[in-house]
């Protein structure tokens, strides 16, 4: 008989040629290591994000080789930079066009809270128009901080229920933002 291991609460049986484990942990691991990010970069945080993509910091190591510049194939929306009020509907539309499951990383002070731009024309944090999973502080944050935020997203993805989008909490969240959702699973 193969070796039985218990990792967290998951029991796995390893034997020559096969492994038994729970499907959601396999899918969670697969998802978290193959996130396709959509960079929504508007200012200096976007430059730091570009540095994170480049060979020195290389977020491709985390399974993010390909930036998805189409929201329809993206899993992770990375908002890096100041979002003006005029841009807010565009951001919201991009978020709505992404298919489930999807996560949002807010990079930097401006995206998270408006930052130094406490003014009539700037959106005071993207969480006023779309739900955010992880906030990265900094003005702008260093690539290490952005990678830390991405790893936090990966931890979320890995341990999240596959049925998150069917949960009443998630539906309530989207309803709070008045985001139309046609999820009808149980």
């Amino acid at each position: 008989m193969g070796k039985i291991t218990a990792e967290g609460n998951v029991e796995a049986i390893n034997y020559e040629g096969f492994q038994l484990t729970r499907l959601d942990t396999v899918i969670g691991a697969a998802r978290s290591n193959s996130l396709w990010p959509l960079p929504f970069a508007t200012s200096c945080c976007g430059i730091e994000y570009m540095a994170s993509m480049a060979p020195n910091y290389d977020i491709a190591r985390f399974g993010m080789e390909r930036m998805s510049f189409s929201p329809r194939q993206a899993d992770l929306l990375i908002v890096a930079g100041t979002i003006s009020k005029k841009l807010a509907p565009v951001l919201r539309q991009v978020y709505e066009q992404m298919s489930e499951p999807k996560w949002v990383l807010s990079v930097g002070a401006c995206a998270s809270s408006g930052g130094i731009f406490d003014t009539y024309s700037v959106l005071q944090g993207i969480d006023r128009v779309i739900p955010v999973d992880v906030y990265v502080p900094g003005c702008p944050p260093r690539p290490e901080q952005i990678i830390d935020g991405i790893m936090n997203i990966q931890a979320l993805v890995k341990h999240e229920s596959l049925r998150r989008r069917y949960s009443p909490e998630y539906k309530d969240l989207l309803d709070n933002y008045n985001i139309e959702n046609d999820i009808d699973g149980k």
Binding site: D118, T119, Y120, Q124
Partner: peptide, 12 residues
């Protein structure tokens, strides 16, 4: 007569 700052900001 209008404030330069965003009136809805909460963290300041």
């Amino acid at each position: 007569e209008y404030h330069l700052e965003d009136e809805t900001r909460q963290d300041k």
